[in-house]
Nucleic acid binder design. Sequence first.
DNA 1: TTGTAGGCGTTATCAA
DNA 2: TTGATAACGCCTACAA
Lengths: 353, 353
Amino acid sequence: MPITIRDVAKRLNLSITTVSRALDGYDDVSEETRQRVRQAAQEMGYFPNQAARHLRRQRSDAIGYILPATQPRFADPFFSEFIAGLGDEAAQHQVDLVISTAPPDSDQEKWLYQTWVQGQKVDGVILHRIRLVDWRIDYLIQAGFPFVSLEKPLPEGDFTYIEVDNRNSVAAMVQHLRERGYQRIAYIGGPETLKIQAERFAGYQAGLEKAGFAYDPKLVAAGDMTSPEGYRQALQILHLPQPPDAFICVNDETAFGVMHAVDEAGLAVGPEVGVAGFDGVQTAGYSQPPLTTLDQPVYDIARHLVGMLLAELNPESQPEHQFVIVPKLLERQSTCGRVGDHCRHGAGTEPQP
Amino acid sequence: MPITIRDVAKRLNLSITTVSRALDGYDDVSEETRQRVRQAAQEMGYFPNQAARHLRRQRSDAIGYILPATQPRFADPFFSEFIAGLGDEAAQHQVDLVISTAPPDSDQEKWLYQTWVQGQKVDGVILHRIRLVDWRIDYLIQAGFPFVSLEKPLPEGDFTYIEVDNRNSVAAMVQHLRERGYQRIAYIGGPETLKIQAERFAGYQAGLEKAGFAYDPKLVAAGDMTSPEGYRQALQILHLPQPPDAFICVNDETAFGVMHAVDEAGLAVGPEVGVAGFDGVQTAGYSQPPLTTLDQPVYDIARHLVGMLLAELNPESQPEHQFVIVPKLLERQSTCGRVGDHCRHGAGTEPQP
DNA sequence: TTGTAGGCGTTATCAA
DNA sequence: TTGATAACGCCTACAA
């Protein structure tokens, strides 16, 4: 039987009003009383009931995030960084993070968002992996519910979001591969419904064009952003009559699988076949060879998103609403190149901080 | 202004009582009324206010997990699998997962647990990374608050937990290394306050003894379970006058850093220096070379923990309380050995499902 | 400076 | 089968 504010009041022969105000630091309570109340509350181990507080205050001091979990084994380090960032920043502001998982576009997902939004389970939500057609955006707008997203939600409108420059950075990656002497570049993407897939693929095409390389649809495959799929898709492509000499992958996880496939095909990752990822997960700096990737500061992005969401929930603040992140191209051994001497042992293998 | 049960009642000229019962599926309401209520609720987009429901029901339908976040950049894939497991199983039971992060043993951690437990923010908590002296255990027991843990909480007492056989499996790893011809085995551990560190280290020592190898404290280092620390510690040890020819690491993340260090020292991971991890994160199957590790089914463990916790919260169930998991030794290229021909190209590199 | 009282939105008890 | 009513625990306008 938990201790309530009544118990504290009774013990001190005070009204619950006074106890409440003393604990919340109002100044219309005598210093002496405040001390007594604080002490008693501490001794009795009183902590306010969260549900009651939320009901009364009409806010939950929690924000929500629903993981798009499709895989039975869902192990992209991207998410642990992302969640750690969300959690750290939320904790810093004394706000809880409520998470759940649901397959994208499932009934379950719909039900979840509805209970959270209309049931006021959370004060706002974080969106991620935006789809080209995304019911969540429409729903949240229509419900007038606060949200922020990684990726621009819609072409038009004043939203709060962080955008990653997918297109230009992947195009720059093509350029990098060309400079390293790779000539025939494949692309292993993610689900076609995803905005990042569309953008990164567009960057790939733009890059090819700029580099004067022909676009060959046989060199393009759609995975699911996991290592096993990256492995499978790469094997197929490597067995083509005219196999590629480099791969750009939609994310690092995919790239790990691709490296494995290249290796298994008896080719050297780097000198013979270049492999590049996207995300900059920490493990990418420690694979053999270390993976060239487009590093986006996932942890910081997550923290920033929470900060922006909380700012939006706070009527007094006047926050920035948009933000563009330009991923940093980390050149490592996995694309050390077919020309030049970038492949000397140890070059570019320094761990990235 | 969200829709309340009152709005639904008013529109149908019914009492809120009837609406409530109709929606909750009680049988003392006429079928016709139930239909009308359901329909109206659906049309109006009514979802019960969670705070009110929790206050009244005296339970939150949520479980809590506090990440032990020490690093500024907290990127162990172990956690994304763990959280995905927690989230998936929780979602399946229509229960929310509330997470936050706090440094182990900090004031913040204490405050968090107290608000959650005494403020009834969640109905139960999941514990992990148990410490040798762990205030959380004492606190939860004293508060009579439901919890389950990965790792046995205390030597004595009837708790609900899943235990991983750390000691024997690490000892078996030593044996494996010996069979592969490695002679001088180092150990890169985690923080000494952690139970898993104590157990895995004990397994290392037991394994050495059984193998007839001398224990050399110079070959032991304490990291923090991250790649960068693994890298740093391994470099130091590799520069000893008598360097080791194999490393056992407290987890896979550490092992990735160690492999990198070995490589940078100009040695071949596998034929020259064996490296073994612990966890079986998916990426471990795709590193170059693939990492030998003790695979524990993190995702399934997490799901199981949630199942056990929910069973415990449900008075009708009679669940199992304890569980021992024996990690599976996955022999891969990173310990292909100094003897025999296990190092042929491709051997043991098949991706693990 | 302190206390009284009403209500946040639900669910559950009891009576009709 | 339905409805009035009282909590759940907290916060806050208003009164004293």
